[in-house]
Amino acid sequence: MFKSSILTKEQLENFALQGLCFADDHVSDPFHIKDVAERLGISYSYFYHNFNDYMGEPFWHYVKRHRLELAAGLLRHSGYNISEISELCGYATTAAFSKAFKQHFKESPKDFRRILVLPNEKRTLQITESITVAAGSDIFGNFFNYERCEKITLPDSILYYSFISRGQNPIGEMIAKMNHYYTMFRKMLTLFDLPQSRIITGTLDSVPVTDYEKLSMFAGISIPVTATAAHQQLRDNFSYLMKKRVPGGSYLKLPVPMDFATAGIPMYNFISRNCKEGIFKMSGNHFFISLAGPNYCEIFIPLLKKHY
């Protein structure tokens, strides 16, 4: 195990972020804090205090909040029933899920599903729009048309990613730092043979359920699980990257001639509008933007099978 006296600030930060990554990647799985600490090679106590100091909330508080916020996103955009959502978000029984959900959101899952405008929705979208408006976020709304979508099947993949931003102004920081990360991941694609890979960006959180100031934005490379040689290359050369399972299956693919920042607001409005109208329902919160070029990206939205 590591000794705290020899750890740098960057290592301490990485331990906390690895804990956040683990919680997200195991959102439907039962686990204990000691499982995370053992994975990181540090003591339970040290991980507990380090996470709390860096993230500003206890680890298990984050796990519970994250699961319930993802559940709220599924209530909003998916076609799953409440029992299915409780299982997807790591609850052993629907009763336990419903009790925890009402304690957190002050509404039952059933009543929450009827809310037209979520508590954080207007504020989050206003903040994001104020940041991206200079890029012309309203101009390209016509590109977000269901008729322009292509229905495709994606393989199960592993995302190797870095956190771009989190904290007080995650969208603003994301825009400021994206060129650096895009260049870094583009170099990786050039240096290594990474078949069927994509540079993607998104959030671990459920927008707009999660408070704007608590969003965790990422960028990374998504690679099909079957590309074993590529995975070995990344593990050998970029062990510092976080990992996340990205489920395959049915997706809507929507190409848009704009940068990721410009696409953000119309993308969310497109998803929200079509889910409300029943045009499609999502199979999870793992929608993402693929960065195909400086001013061209592709939106990928996971579809519930019966809407495929």
Rank of each mutant, 00 (worst) to 15 (best):
S86K: 05
P257L: 06
R113L: 08
A37K: 08
Y62G: 00
S4E: 15
M174N: 13
F101T: 00
M55A: 10
S272K: 15
H32C: 04
R113E: 12
G264M: 14
L125R: 09
K253V: 02
I6E: 14
P58F: 08
G284M: 09
I115M: 12
K106A: 13
Y46N: 06
S130G: 10
E107Q: 14
T203R: 03
F288H: 10
T128P: 04
D138L: 11
F238R: 14
K102C: 10
Y182M: 07
Q103D: 15
D25C: 05
H66A: 01
M242F: 15
A92T: 00
G284Q: 05
A292H: 09
Y44L: 11
H61I: 10
D236E: 14
A261E: 15
F2P: 00
D24L: 11
P302N: 01
H104W: 11
P30F: 11
F192A: 07
G79L: 05
L234E: 05
D205A: 05
M282G: 02
L68E: 08
S290M: 11
P294A: 04
G202C: 05
E129Y: 08
K102P: 01
M55F: 12
F51Q: 03
F140L: 13
R67N: 02
G136C: 00
L125Y: 03
K177F: 09
S86V: 04
K110C: 03
E69M: 09
Y48H: 13
P302S: 08
G167M: 04
A37N: 07
G73V: 06
G136A: 04
